[in-house]
Amino acid sequence: MAPRAAISPLNSDTALQDEVCQERVIHAEHVVEVRRHVLPAQGALQIATLFSMLSDPTRLQVLHALLCAPTGELCVCDLAAGLGRDDTTISHQLRVLRQQKVVAMRKVGRVVYYRLIDEHIRQLLLMGQDHIQEGHVSQRQLDSEVL
C-alpha cells in the first residue's frame, strides 16, 4: 500500500485560502507605513537572539526563580536544589544568561549569587505569564477582530 501524504495546514488548499488574501490589492498608504517602520536587519537579529535565549525552558525557570526570589538574588546551589537540577546545568544556563547581559553575579567567598539586571527582562517574563494565564481565545475570535 502506498504511503498517504500528511495533511497539514500548509498543504491544504482550504486552509491556505483562509490565510491568504483572495484578491491582489496593494494599499499604497499601508506599504509606505510598513517601509517607514521596517525593523532593520541588525535590530531583528538582536531581538531574535534575545527571544532564542528566552526559548529554553530551563533558562526560563531560572529567570522566573530569580524574579520571585525574596532577596532578589539566589546562589547556584539554591537554584539547582529548588529547580531539581544539578549545579552544572544551572551554572551553564546562568553563564548563557550572563553573556547575554540578563543576569549579574556577585561572589561572597565561595558562594556565587545571581540576580536579574534588566527591568525589560522582568517585564517580558511578567507579560509572558499574563499572556498564558489569559483565557485561551479561539482563532476564530482573533480572526473576526481583524475584520
Rank of each mutant, 00 (worst) to 15 (best):
R95E: 12
T88G: 09
C68E: 13
D118I: 09
L125E: 01
R98W: 06
L97F: 04
G109M: 01
D130F: 12
L116D: 09
C77P: 00
L66M: 04
I132T: 13
V111L: 03
I90N: 00
L94W: 05
A69T: 09
G82F: 05
L79S: 01
A104N: 14
V111Q: 07
Q100V: 01
G72A: 04
G82D: 00
Q99Y: 08
R106T: 10
V112A: 07
L79E: 01
D130R: 15
V108G: 09
T71S: 15
D118Q: 12
D118F: 03
V96R: 05
I90W: 03
R85S: 02
V112S: 11
C75N: 15
Y113R: 02
D87G: 09
L125V: 06
V76L: 11
K107R: 15
M127R: 15
G84C: 08
Q129G: 09
L74R: 11
A104T: 14
V112D: 04
L126C: 13
A104M: 14
M127P: 00
G82P: 04
K107W: 02
V108T: 12
Q123V: 11
R106V: 06
G82K: 05
V96I: 13
H131I: 07
R106N: 08
Q100E: 06
Q93H: 14
R110V: 10
V111K: 08
Y113Q: 05
R98F: 08
R98N: 12
T71A: 14
Q100W: 00
D118K: 05
E73V: 09
H92C: 06
